[in-house]
Design a protein around this nucleic acid. Sequence first.
DNA 1: ATGGATGCAAATGATTTGCATGAAG
DNA 2: CTTCATGCAAATCATTTGCATCCAT
Lengths: 156, 156
Amino acid sequence: MKAKSDIDFEKEEFKLILNSHSQRITAPRLEILSILKSSKNPLTISEIHSQMKNSKTDLATVYRTLNLFADLKIVSQIDFKDDFMRYELIFDRHHHHHVVCRTCGRIENVEACILGELEKMLAQKGYTDLSHSLEFFGVCESCRVNSITSKQRKTV
Amino acid sequence: MKAKSDIDFEKEEFKLILNSHSQRITAPRLEILSILKSSKNPLTISEIHSQMKNSKTDLATVYRTLNLFADLKIVSQIDFKDDFMRYELIFDRHHHHHVVCRTCGRIENVEACILGELEKMLAQKGYTDLSHSLEFFGVCESCRVNSITSKQRKTV
DNA sequence: ATGGATGCAAATGATTTGCATGAAG
DNA sequence: CTTCATGCAAATCATTTGCATCCAT
C-alpha cells in the first residue's frame, strides 16, 4: 500500500507532466495517469475505465484522454491484433516490446531491441521521423504444459 | 497484359491451393486470390471488393473469404494502425515487413529481418509457436522534399 | 470571464452474423 | 442430395462526435 506522501509525490509528478504540455489538470486525467503508472501491462480503455474510483467518469472521457495522451506522446498505443487498443505510459520506462501468450493472454516485456540497424537502412533510403511497432505472439510455457496434460487426459 | 495461358496457369495454381486445404473452389475465392496476387502492396477489404469485376459479390463474402484465408495461412493480416486491416498473399513471397509513409501512405517492403535472435531468446524462456509483427512508419523522401518546399513557399 | 473538459446521448463505420437460397462435390 | 458458400439485411461493438454544462485558469 502506498504511503500518503508517495501519493502526493505522484500527483505532483502528474501535474508537472500536464503543465509541461499546457494541458489542464483535471481529476479524470490524474486518475488515469495513476492507473497507468501502477499497471505492469498495457491496459485497454475498458480496463482503465473499470478501475476508476470516480465511477461517473464517462467512457468517452477515457477515450478522449487517451487520444490526447497519445498525441502528446505521454502514452504509447499498442495493438495486439485483438479488438482493443492498449495504452502504456512512456515516460519513466525505456523502450520495449511485448510477448503475448496466444492461449492465456499473459503479457511479458521484451527489453531487447535490435532494430537500430534496420532503421538506419531506412534512413539511408531517405525516410525520416522513423518509428516502428513490434509485437511477438506465442504460447507460454505454462500453457504448453497444460495443453500437453489435457491431451494425455484425452488419450486415457 | 496477361496471356490467356498465364491466366489459366494462375487459376490452376489457385485451385490447387484451395483443394489442398479442402476448400471449395468458387468464383469469388478465385477472383480474390487473383487480385491479391497482382498487387504489390497489402490491400484493404474495400480495395479488394472494389477491384472485383463480378460486382455483385457482397462485402460480407469478401470479409468471410479473407478471414478464411487468414486462418488457413494463405494470407497474412497486416495492421498499419489506421482503421483497416490489410491482406497480402503469403505463398510465393518470402517473409518481409513494411515501411509506411506517414504522409502519403506509400508502402515499401523491408526484406531484411533480424528477429531470429530475439525469437530464440523467447524460445529459451519457454515460448513456443512464436511469430511476430513488425511495421515501420516514417516520412518518405518525396514527402519530406514537398514539405520543405511548401515551407519555403510560406516564408516567401 | 472564457476556453477547454466532461457527461450524456446519438452517430459512425468496420466487421460479424442469421437466414434463406444457390452452387460445389 | 447434402454440405457449405453466398447475398441480403440486420446486428454488433469499439470508437467518435455534437451539444449543453461545468470547471480550471
